[in-house]
Design a binder for these strands. Structure first.
Lengths: 215, 215
DNA sequence: TAGATTGTTAATCGATTAACAATC
DNA sequence: TAGATTGTTAATCGATTAACAATC
C-alpha cells in the first residue's frame, strides 16, 4: 500500500470526507466534483484534490469523482474494510457508553470484551458482554485477536495498564484517560482528552465575549 | 484581555500545559524552565516560550517560570476562573457518562440540567439531576444562565436542536453528534467526533502493519 | 471536438524552530 | 558580576492554496 509518510493533518480529514461521501451516496448522488464538495464541506477544492491524491488518482478529468467508488476507497484507506476486535478497559459510564454505541460495530469495530478491576462490576452484563476481571485481560487479548484497546479508566491506573497492553502486543490504544501514554512506536495511541476539548471551548467562548465587550 | 487572533493550534496546546503544570504543582515543584518542561512534554522549548508569550510574559530571565503562578494564569486564559453552567441534551449513555464525570465540576463546569425527548427517561434521576422534557429547554437556559450546551443526541436531531440553542442565545456547543453544525459566528462549537477519532486510529495502526510487512 | 475537471507543480501562507540580545 | 533563561526576531519547515497543463 502507501509508502510515503502522510501527515496527520491529512489523515484527520479523511473521516470527514468519508462522512460526506456516505451522505451523498445515501442521497443517490452518483458523481461529484471537488468544487461541489468543497462548497458543501467548506474547504477548498484544492485541498480536497491534494488530500485524495496522496492515496491515488480517484477522479477523472472532466467528470469529477464517482461517489460510490471514492466512498469505498476511503473506507479501505481507513482500514474499514477489515474487522477490528476491541476490548474496553474500565466499565464505568464512559466504557459502557462506547460499548453500547452501535455505530462502531456497523463500521467493523467489534467489541469482544470489557474489563474492570472492581469486583462489584465483574459478572454484570453490559450490552451482550459480561464484565471480566483485569487478571483475564492478557490471555483474552491473545485468544481473541484483539487489535484495539479502549482505555476508559482514571489516569492513575492508565499508565500501568498501557504497559501491560504493550506486553500483550496490542497494536492500538484509544486513550480516554487524562494522561500521556509512552509506548513503543509500533503501538498507535489516539487520545480523546475530553477535558482538554471542553477547556478549548471555554477559551473560545470566553474570548469571544471579550472581543465583543472590547468593541 | 487578548486582542490579536491566536491560532487554534496554540489554544489546543494550552490544556496540556495546564495539566503538566498542575502535576508539577502537586509534586511541590516551584519553578521550571522551558527546557525542563520541554523534556517532560516532548515539545520544543521554543514552542513553549512562543506559545506562552502570546498571552504575556509569565517567566523571568535566568529563573524560568513559577509553576503556581503560571498554572493560575493559564487557568485564567482558559476561562477556568469563572464558573460555567452546562446542560446536557440527550440522556443516553454518553450524556450520563459526561454528567457523572466529576472532574468537570472540579474545574468549574457545573451541570445544571439534562434533557431528553424520550418520555420514558423523563423524570428519572441521573446523578443529582432529573431528566427533563425537551420542551422545557428554552426557558431553562434563560432562567439558569446556561453558557454551554452539550449535544449527545443522534445526528438526525442535532441540527434542529442546535438551531433552537442559537435562538436561546447559547454561547457554546460541545457537539458529540456526528454532524457539522452551522451556527452564527458568535456561537462556538467544539466537535468531539468519536468515530472520526477511531477511524484515525484504525488508519494509523493498519498502516503501521503495512509498513512493517513491506520491509 | 470543446468543456470540464482532475492531477500536479509552483507560490503563498502560517506555524515551528533556531538564534540571540535583553535582563533577571 | 557571571550564568541562566526568557522574550522576541529571524530562518526554516510544512501545509494550504493557486494555477495550469494533461486528459477524460
Amino acid at each position: 500500500m502507501e509508502r510515503k509518510e502522510i501527515s496527520q493533518a491529512v489523515i484527520s480529514r479523511l473521516p470527514r470526507y468519508y462522512r460526506y461521501l456516505g451522505e451523498l451516496r445515501d442521497d443517490g448522488v452518483e458523481r461529484i466534483s471537488s468544487q461541489e464538495l468543497s462548497k458543501k464541506m467548506q474547504v477548498t477544492a484544492s485541498q480536497i484534490r491534494q488530500d485524495l491524491n496522496h492515496f491515488g488518482g480517484f477522479g477523472q478529468q472532466g467528470y469529477g469523482y464517482n461517489v460510490e467508488y471514492l466512498y469505498v476507497e476511503i473506507a479501505k484507506i481507513l482500514g474499514l474494510d477489515q474487522e477490528h476486535n476491541l476490548i474496553v478497559i474500565g466499565a464505568g459510564n464512559l466504557g459502557q457508553a462506547l460499548l453500547n454505541y452501535s455505530n462502531f460495530s456497523r463500521r467493523g469495530f467489534i467489541f469482544k470484551g470489557i474489563f474492570d478491576h472492581n469486583p462489584k462490576l465483574q459478572g454484570t452484563k453490559i450490552g451482550e458482554l459480561e464484565v471480566r476481571p483485569m487478571e483475564e485481560m492478557s490471555a483474552f487479548i491473545t485468544k481473541n485477536n484483539i487489535d484495539i484497546a479502549v482505555l476508559t479508566i482514571p489516569k492513575t491506573g492508565a499508565v500501568k495498564v498501557a504497559e501491560k497492553l504493550v506486553e500483550c502486543n496490542i497494536r492500538a490504544i484509544w486513550n480516554f484517560a487524562h494522561v500521556d501514554l509512552h509506548v513503543p512506536e509500533w503501538v498507535q495511541v489516539e487520545n480523546v482528552h475530553l477535558s482538554d476539548s471542553l477547556m478549548k471551548l471555554s477559551y473560545n467562548s470566553s474570548r469571544y465575549q471579550d472581543i465583543k465587550n472590547a468593541k
